[in-house]
Design a binder for these strands. Structure first.
Length: 157
DNA sequence: GCCAACGTTGGC
DNA sequence: GCCAACGTTGGC
């Protein structure tokens, strides 16, 4: 039985890595996540073909800037083993990795960013995990209904 | 730059 | 196992 297609939202600070960087690179590995909940999504749940909303955080304007898809499911994040890397973690061993990542591929950049403000104005999106007060998770699930609504917004074309 | 909200750390 | 202190995230 083929797994249902799932959807996710992944936050990135565009100063560090933007949707335009992803467009240029075509694919990238999502390294540097050092939060267990987000790690679990990548390690256990994200599958090839899953849809990804690429979200720009900590910038003006904040919001969904494009979309991508998962092209490789969870595997060990090698940056945890690199002493020179910002995300180096002595506790993560190659024989027993702690941190995981997935690969994503660019699909589309929004013509205009779908701002956080705008997402908050759509009643049917009230349940979106990323909109919950105080939420800081860098990867959150997106319900299929939420994905459908977002895909119909005019900012895409 | 501020600061609320949250996750992690570590003393006990 | 509790919880205060601390560090980080991220909207504003």
């Amino acid at each position: 039985m083929a797994a249902e297609k799932q959807y996710w939202l992944m936050k990135s600070e565009p100063n560090a890595y933007s949707i335009h960087d992803l467009k240029r690179d075509r694919t990238t590995y999502w390294s540097g996540v050092r939060n267990y909940q987000a790690r679990n999504f990548m390690r256990d749940r994200m599958q090839i073909g899953d849809g990804v909303l690429f979200y720009h955080s900590n910038v003006e304007p904040v919001g969904v800037a494009g979309r991508a898809e998962v092209v490789k499911s969870g595997y060990p994040d090698h940056t945890a083993w690199d002493k020179k890397n910002k995300y180096y973690d002595t506790a993560s061993l190659s024989s027993r990795p702690i941190w995981f990542m997935v690969d994503i591929r660019f699909v589309q950049a929004c013509r205009e960013v779908i701002t956080l403000k705008r997402l908050k104005e759509i009643p049917a999106l009230k349940t979106m995990a990323v909109l919950r007060k105080g939420n800081r998770l860098s990867i959150t699930p997106v319900a299929p209904e939420e994905w459908e609504i977002i895909m119909k917004l005019p900012e895409w074309s």
